[in-house]
Design a protein around this nucleic acid. Structure first.
Lengths: 151, 151
DNA sequence: GTGTTATCGTTGGTTCAAACAACGTTAGGT
DNA sequence: ACCTAACGTTGTTTGAACCAACGATAACAC
């Protein structure tokens, strides 16, 4: 019984975009775990948003990242304790927490970026540069036309 | 302050294949949740494998789906209780549980398939047929050249 | 044969992400 | 002044992925 059948996923699954996305996500998650702390993915997302768009409220952060206020709050608390962001109640609207990236956070973001780059290269290794670009375009098309938030 | 900025994800994230895969996966998961029970995704994977490859041991199932024995055991227990599969200790190797799909399970699989088809159509709506096919090819290339299991 | 190694199913536990509900606080609209 | 809505926060739930360990069984070495 040494008939080592190739472990090919069933055709019904290979045909599913959602299943493929799931597996690639798991793959990326595993690779990410080898290069950075487990919380690095979420941290990277929040810090990247703050760097590109400047200070934001937590709710706005959630809207731009497709995460709800709940998740953002947890990430923000962690980043705040690590001095990677600065949290302050907005004077104009005291309901809001204005969140800004700190210089320390910027350094942390850069570290995460280099680690992430290696993961992306490893993940997209079987693809040519043109193919990787096209894949990014196609996935972007899907994400652009679907609501980011569940509500 | 009615300047409703478009909620575009930061460029640093849009450039990441792993981020895109994560978001598409979440998107697919949400859509799936509207059409079938939450456990439908895992059930579909296991039943599809059994239908395509015939009876398998739980460990073999895990190897073909990229899930570890642990997860498979949970799914199999649930499917067994629902009479969707039949679990029996292999006579040739009494360590193994040979798992086979039942007629009832086949009907369940077909139901999940139709629900899944609608989700896929909704997910790939912004893409042309050719684009969707190419996306599937590119993701398949990545999955083919990466190990399915963590061990 | 006997002992070692490996596989399998199972149980239990940990971590993370996603989603929902509820509360007090604050703004905005009427 | 009233009602509605948004915000931050806390808590809970669910599913997925992963790791560690155990008894049972099998395969292999000697």
């Amino acid at each position: 019984m040494t008939e080592n059948e190739t472990t090919a996923p069933p055709a019904r699954l290979r045909a599913l975009l959602s299943w493929q996305a799931n597996r690639v996500n798991v793959l990326g998650s595993r690779l990410t775990g080898t290069r950075m702390p487990a919380t690095g993915r979420a941290d990277f997302a929040v810090l990247a948003a703050l760097e590109e768009y400047g200070p934001l409220s937590q709710a706005d952060l959630g809207r731009q990242l497709g995460l709800d206020r709940n998740t953002i709050n947890g990430i923000a608390t962690r980043l705040d304790e690590a001095k990677h962001i600065l949290r302050a109640t907005d004077a104009a609207d005291r309901r809001r927490n204005t969140v800004a990236i700190t210089p320390l956070g910027q350094r942390y973001l850069d570290q995460l970026q280099t680690a992430t780059d290696r993961v992306q290269a490893e993940l997209a290794a079987p693809l040519s540069k043109a193919e990787a670009a096209q894949l990014q375009t196609l996935l972007g098309k899907i994400l652009d036309t679907h609501p980011g938030l569940p509500s």
